[in-house]
Design a protein around this nucleic acid. Structure first.
Lengths: 241, 241
DNA sequence: CAGTGGTCTAGACCACTTA
DNA sequence: AAGTGGTCTAGACCACTGA
């Protein structure tokens, strides 16, 4: 009768506890979690149950397990975070992933507009930080990015010097914000005059626009990013399975 | 010393056996596999080991498990296959998936050109079937597709009447070809005159081009598909995690 | 009711890491 | 050598399905 969200299996409860602790920053990135035995003892379940929960965490790239060493909160290192979210590659049959360089960068603080409040679920009068930058491939600008962040989650990020290539490691390391998933929407558009100037191309060149909302472990949207890419020499690569 | 591909864990061997049997069509789609107990007995391992292998199969959508009933080879039904590979949706905040209708269709048989031989790993003189069709959304053509198949894998497919909306269920049901993954490459292009006519738009409209190679369970590329989409009202949606 | 997959436990042994 | 995760087993009980 009761349509209460029914009791979860033990291993899912354990999973939930661990996610919450990671989200709270109980264990810093790259720091070892307690061993399976220790957690099993603390939580009063068998080692196998903890294992199943931790295997699920590992499958979602939330932790990294290494035989003989231990389990670690997954670290958004430069390399890692790049290839997790940056999906541009050379077209087949080459298919090599691309490591982009950073180009020009402008950052400013301002009030959120209506679109931003809606996409990022912000209150009226919320402040955001807007970052615009270009990314270069082989020294040539190929991507322009507009990144919008709620200032409340990232206080003083606009005063930070030298933002890294992959912001997600900064979010995680400095602000304790772990990105769980990113929802992307792709479409084809035409370069306007501003795009054309920054990318050194003709207005009217087709561009791939990637509209991304990054969602943290707790389900809150924490970043809105719109990228425009010149895909004449590179492609956006996905594996569907 | 020996860098021989080392012995696999038992459950991976079991996994391999099961994949092979599915690929061979030992169990037809929608037909029940033997129970965990039965397989464990037959293969001489414990039930837990079979379970781990089958859980992996389920995680990859190769089989479907249902408590109380049994495990089934995943069926590429219309609904299923559509939402697995057809990623067009309405832009946020709506986000509903789109079910496209079928429009015009042309099919012909011919020799493979060099690009096709390379993409599909075909021999010289190989024959292919080329299918061109449009897909409608709300009665308006939004996508044009060019699909190229090796005739050797799909004999007589060009004589088939009434090709379904989702070809993958046909490949699986009639030809025993199970699609394991699809590798997609996306880029922005401009509509040429032919595109424009079929989509009833102006030449020079930006289109999202999706270049997909579908790979079967045995690793063979079995379909090359190039889709061109008018993404002014719809988007290609991806979740990255 | 019997049979299925889902959960949970307990314990064994192995492979790898570090000291 | 001690501690970690990885594999494997055996057996228990539960929840769901269908005859």
């Amino acid at each position: 009768m009761a349509s209460i969200p029914d009791f979860q299996p033990l291993y899912k409860q354990v999973y939930g506890v661990l996610v919450q602790r990671i989200a709270e920053g109980a264990w810093r990135p790259a720091q070892a979690l307690p061993s399976e035995q220790a957690l099993a003892g603390e939580l009063g379940v068998s080692q196998g149950t903890v294992r199943k929960a931790m295997d699920a965490l590992a499958a979602e790239n939330l932790i990294l397990r290494r035989q003989g060493k231990g389990s670690y909160v997954a670290e958004h290192t430069q390399e890692h975070a790049l290839f997790r979210f940056f999906r541009l590659a050379r077209p087949s049959p080459d298919c090599r992933r691309i490591t982009p360089q950073l180009g020009e960068e402008k950052i400013r603080r301002r009030a959120a507009n209506e679109t931003e409040r809606s996409r990022l679920k912000l209150r009226k009068n919320a402040q955001v930080v807007e970052l615009r930058r270009t990314r270069l491939i082989d020294e040539i600008p190929k991507v322009i990015e507009k990144i919008v962040l709620p200032l409340s989650l990232f206080p003083g990020i606009d005063k930070q010097q030298a933002l890294p290539n992959t912001l997600y490691s900064l979010y995680q390391g400095v602000y304790g914000v772990n990105i769980a998933v990113a929802k992307e929407e792709l479409r084809a558009i035409l370069a306007n005059k501003g795009d054309a100037k920054e990318l050194r191309i003709e207005p009217g060149t087709p561009l791939l626009q990637i509209d991304r909302i990054a969602v943290a472990l707790d389900g809150q949207p924490v970043e809105w990013r719109v990228s425009r890419c010149d895909t004449r020499d590179i492609v956006y690569a996905v594996d569907v399975n």
